[in-house]
């Protein structure tokens, strides 16, 4: 026998979207951060594990990577947080024009970063096949590239979407805001990698 309902509240007036932790997607994105964060953390642990039983880092006779491309990449990445914050703010305030522009800027910065990343690979001074040192250096860059590309493609799709009739739905603004959050994750994870790839090989004798 089914239980009879006893009616209490009516929720018809609840909103249908909300930002931040009130949104379901926010929790999904957070969970993905945790997943990817653990993957990064374990990749870092592997780096130190391999470093630990070497006499020198990079193991002789290899020389540390050249600084230019990686440093430029870092600077651009950090600066990109300015338009990114503006974009996030605009999304949370429903400013469609600014959101459209902001997304295009992020996409353009992404292209620049990709070019820099290619130069980064070239400036590592080691191939992934040379030894485990080379393998882990390449792995860190590739792992980061994968996240970076994911977010870049996502930004492209959103940029296109916001220019269509779907752009006015509030849910899409939530998506943009969450995408901006992801971008922060991408540059935050880059900072330790920058140190590990470019500086630790210089600091450690």
């Amino acid at each position: 026998m089914m239980l009879q309902p006893r009616f209490t509240d009516d929720l018809a007036t609840l909103p249908t979207t909300a930002f931040s932790h009130r949104s379901l997607t926010w929790w999904g994105v957070l969970a993905f951060f945790l997943i990817e964060g653990s993957a990064f953390a374990l990749a870092f642990a592997s780096y130190f594990f391999l470093m630990n039983h070497e006499q020198g880092w990079p193991p002789p006779p290899w020389s540390p990577p050249d600084l230019l491309a990686g440093t430029l990449f870092t600077i651009v990445m950090l600066l990109s947080e300015i338009p990114n914050s503006m974009l996030k703010h605009a999304a949370e305030h429903g400013q469609l024009k600014k959101v459209r522009a902001g997304l295009l800027i992020i996409v353009a910065i992404g292209v620049l970063l990709m070019v820099l990343r290619i130069f980064e690979f070239a400036s590592l001074n080691v191939l992934w096949t040379d030894n485990a040192y080379g393998s882990i250096m390449w792995a860190l860059l590739v792992l980061h590239l994968a996240h970076f590309l994911t977010d870049w493609v996502d930004s492209c799709v959103l940029a296109a979407l916001m220019h269509t009739e779907h752009g006015i739905e509030k849910r899409r603004f939530v998506d943009v805001s969450e995408n901006a959050m992801y971008w922060r994750f991408v540059w935050l994870t880059w900072l330790p990698i920058y140190v590990m790839v470019y500086w630790l090989p210089r600091w450690i004798p």
Binding site: T129, D130, N131, A132
Partner: peptide
């Protein structure tokens, strides 16, 4: 890492190329 070692020649686990 294992697939990379097997398919694209990385050395993560190869003790003779500084892997472990």
């Amino acid at each position: 890492f294992l697939l990379a070692d097997r398919l694209v020649g990385t050395q993560f686990f190869n003790p003779f190329e500084r892997g472990d």
